[in-house]
Design a protein around this nucleic acid. Structure first.
Lengths: 339, 339
DNA sequence: CCCCATTGTCGAAGCGCTTCGACGCTCTCA
DNA sequence: TGAGAGCGTCGAAGCGCTTCGACAATGGGG
């Protein structure tokens, strides 16, 4: 039971210097002689001093905390969100910031409250919709923010994301190289498209355009997430398009159901049909066969988001949009090179 | 762009009262006449006042923030963690607290830092191991804490969790009622047991003891999470135990692979073999067939953890261990009533 | 050799809030 | 009718930190 906490005053007394000197040693905002610095740091260590966060925030007008706003909605793949979240926390710590977790139940009010009370210095928002209700709020907030994902109108905002259009195209190109002439995209559940979730639509568009550009027949379909529905959809698709030889799956929750359904319909992967997924690596590796995939670089997205936010906090100007280049990893599900 | 934030002084001036009066209206810690209260609240509303969190924390020695410590380790099922996390946030908000997210990369130092700097008033820890390195730290921290999960020695701690032993037993009892004589448990990956994760072991024990108590032959096995490994394990199990007619699966990531493997081995569920899972409802419902399951009541666990923490913050004494009763939901995978 | 710039340190003034003690009222009851 | 008990409000003293201006002490250039 550590009694009352050690204050900067006690450190100053112990080191035989003024309180302000201790503060300057710790912040490095003024030159301090090597000797004094050493004495102060020794005292800090022996007393086990930790600056009081509230006092620091009050005096410096900086909380050293950023908010991570993650609404949890239907159709989002949770593990990916979690990867974003942890990478945001890790990156924030590297800038000596902590992360406050805000969820959807409070709605925009929660954001406003956290910002207005100076609880946080800035915000990172995840799972952004094309027409997100939080966006107008962000625009008239004094605190800077960064969005993971792109809304329809990015004017005045800062957004980061994987270049999903490119990702969709990349899958098509890979399949085109393998000689396929007819390909299909199994995407997110219909509700996700209806809601206007940017990354789903952009993948769809990237897929469609690339298919056209490479002279392939490409069909894109939403894809639900129960085994039954997936199996039915896959069955219909195989019946309707006998020439179909390759599949792009952009739905983490359904990807294993798709493989199960193909198995059930007697199609071997990759011999009868090749499959490319857009999903985290662990899912791709854990599937059977292991899936050629474009991964969501969650760790990098989170890191970039924090970096951009820190830049804004320092008053630097940052680009409105930052798109990360997708990379495709070839695994067993498209192992047959050429056909 | 809201300029500088509104302070309590401005509210006081606007309402024509003293600063302390505004404070008392807002905290309710002293009686205030109905008239004054109304005037103050009006001013608060028209000026859009939000108390400065840092100043409040400094003066009241209460940050109104709790830490949520979630190490992310191999073998943990992420969506469940996320459910815990959101329910903790929601519950905390109901007590007017916010949630600071702490992850593993800083290790115990992160916990110590957040506590010592008065960033947080208390802690909720998730994913607790039997011999968790964070536990000794918690014992000599001035700040109260609550663990989600039980370490080996709970003395001086406060722990909440689903009663996993009971959950394991419940599955066995359900299967016993259905007339099964030989049952198996497919559990977590081996590494989880080796690490000494309490809930996995306790389910295992509950399963084993209940099987013995009901005179069933019960075998328990770890279960990896790639389709290949699961399929192999299931195959061996079916070969080794021809009399096996029921399965308990306690592994969210593997549960669909298990169903896939049974399908592959020509076993129909529930006609040839019945399956009970311990997993979130959404997974159980999304499987084919829908699985009879004992769900992890993540929402309730999170809520209880916060409630206990708030009780401790108020100085109330709370029980060392709180075990939540599991409930079994019957679905299609054990629909055949009796055999 | 003197002046001025630089370096290192200090003291004090807040930052915006909570909380304590004080004080003037208005009632109540003897 | 006067003492005592609330009730409602105020002023002021911090909470622990950052930061600004001041000021010795030192050193370099004219």
């Amino acid at each position: 039971m550590s009694g009352r906490a050690v204050t900067i005053t006690e450190v100053a007394r112990h080191a035989g210097v003024a309180v302000s000197t201790v503060s300057y040693v710790l912040s490095g905002k003024r030159a301090i002689s090597a000797d004094t610095r050493r004495r102060v740091l020794d005292s800090v260590r022996t007393l086990g001093y930790h600056p009081n966060a509230g006092a620091r925030a009050l005096a410096s007008r900086r909380a050293n905390v950023i908010a991570l706003v993650l609404p949890l909605r239907v159709g989002m793949h949770v593990p990916v969100l979690m990867q974003f979240a942890t990478s945001v926390v890790t990156a924030a710590r590297q800038y000596d910031h902590d992360v406050l977790l805000l969820t959807a139940d409070e709605g925009p009010d929660g954001i406003r409250r956290a910002a207005a009370s100076a609880l946080v210095d800035g915000l990172v928002l995840m799972d952004v919709e094309l027409h997100d209700t939080r966006v107008p709020l962000l625009r008239d907030l004094a605190e800077p923010s960064v969005l993971i994902g792109f809304p329809a109108d990015t004017a005045g905002l800062t957004c980061v994301d994987l270049d999903f259009a490119r990702a969709g195209a990349l899958c098509v190109e890979h399949l085109a190289q393998h000689g396929h002439r007819e390909v299909a995209l199994l995407g997110a559940p219909a509700v996700v498209y209806e809601r206007g979730t940017g990354f789903a639509s952009r993948t769809w568009e990237g897929f469609t355009e690339a298919a056209a550009a490479h002279g392939l027949t490409g069909v894109a379909l939403p894809c639900e997430e129960t085994f039954e529905q997936v199996a039915a959809a896959v069955g219909e698709l195989l019946d309707a398009r006998p020439g179909l030889t390759a599949l792009v799956v952009h739905n983490e929750a359904a990807v294993n159901h798709v493989l199960g359904a193909l198995r059930q319909h007697g199609r071997r992967v990759p011999q009868d049909i090749e499959v490319v997924a857009i999903c985290p690596d662990d899912i791709a590796e854990r599937s059977s066969p292991a899936l050629t995939s474009v991964l969501i670089p969650a760790e990098e997205v989170g890191r970039q988001a924090v970096r951009l936010l820190m830049d804004k906090l320092e008053g630097r100007t940052v680009p409105e949009g930052t798109l990360l280049r997708p990379r495709l990893t070839v695994r067993d599900s498209t192992a047959a090179s050429g056909r």
